[in-house]
Design a protein around this nucleic acid. Structure first.
Lengths: 205, 205
DNA sequence: TGGTCATCGATAACACTGTTCCGATACGCT
DNA sequence: AGCGTATCGGAACAGTGTTATCGATGACCA
């Protein structure tokens, strides 16, 4: 054997860190391997020996993003009231997205052209939605929600938060728009729509 | 003065057409000015004298996308029942997106890194949502919907369709998921959530 | 009609990207 | 000590968007 590797775990973390900063500072367009390597005081080869390629590097960012995101979701306190809990999870989702918009772009809107998450990363991503499904299954089992497939409700909830956050991040919301209030109102309206008719008296807004 | 331009309107249309085809065939990553020019039998300079830059070319695609999209929205037959009409518009939105997914990517998910729509294009985009707002305003005025700012409801409706379509196009829906049915159910649930409580008896399916 | 010359457009160059190759390096082992 | 080899960094390759160059062109005016 020969020459011990200097492209070690420490450098790997440093590169990921700098990549996150570059991303946050100037967006996915500015995330260049050359600039990244230069900033970290190494060469582009290091990125290839540590990650494999640029998409693989982005995959690591994707995974890290979902780790943080999953922690926020799992750490959201729940009350047992299905509608309120869905609103709470939705708010956590938005908080997470606003905390690191470009990471959100990688995770949910394919903002880096060549990138597709690998199987492990995708599995991790799906795991983070588990709290959502748990709430919905219970609400359906308890007769609070309509008796429809839980996936349908879960997808609907995911869609509204994803849609709202995407519109907000893309700057597509109207001027003088009270985002936080409207966001909660929309989440509550959406969740309330799945209530069984006789229990539909829970007033939105 | 001298030499009349041969980079005329016909070439402009041809380039736009080929650009759409390249986009539809291999996605935004494969939309290269060199390939485009070669395919159209001209040089890259033509693109610059006709459009200005690549983002400007994409802006033209964006505008064309919203022209078609707006036509579909405006052409959707309405019944006067707010919830059903919102579902119908939402379905038209999805149809439009599925008809040309990559164009949808340009229009709604910033799939081309450097591109931002210019003012005219953005104004046109906003115009296409007018039918939505009309329905909502009337429903609120008639006391069918809750008395909240119409923008709040409009954004909520836009968000759920955008969210659902994004998830579908990104391949994030569960296996064995009846998209069309669930899509309508989610739209109906979302719209129903804005009904005033006393009229909340409209049963989602 | 012939000459001038502004203008157009294709070629080539530039600065950048991700990726690959290859030779110099620097350690572990004999 | 010296060999061998895995490792690493710089250079090379193929591609991108963009810009500059410069020859060809055709409309105007004499």
């Amino acid at each position: 054997m020969a020459r011990p590797r200097t492209h070690d775990e420490a450098l790997r973390l440093k590169l990921l860190d700098r990549a996150g900063e570059l991303l946050a500072a100037d967006g996915p367009k500015a995330l260049s391997l050359r600039k990244l390597a230069a900033d970290a005081g190494t060469s582009t080869t290091a990125v290839y020996s540590l990650f494999g390629s640029k998409p693989d590097l982005v995959n690591a960012l994707y995974t890290e993003g979902f780790r943080r995101f999953g922690a926020r979701m799992a750490g959201t306190p729940l009350t047992g009231d299905a509608v309120e809990d869905l609103v709470a999870l939705g708010s956590a989702y938005r908080t997470s997205a606003l905390a690191d918009p470009h990471l959100y772009g990688i995770m949910f809107t394919k903002s880096v052209p060549g990138f597709e998450p690998n199987e492990d990363a995708e599995k991790l991503a799906r795991e983070t939605l588990k709290p959502l499904e748990r709430i919905i299954r219970r609400a359906i089992a308890d007769g609070v929600f309509l008796d429809v497939p839980p996936e349908t409700v879960a997808v609907g909830c995911w869609a509204i938060v994803h849609g709202l956050v995407s519109l907000e991040l893309a700057g597509n919301l109207p001027e003088e728009f009270d985002v936080t209030t409207s966001y909660e109102a929309a989440l509550r309206a959406n969740a309330s729509g799945w209530l069984r008719p006789q229990s539909a008296g829970t007033e939105p807004s």
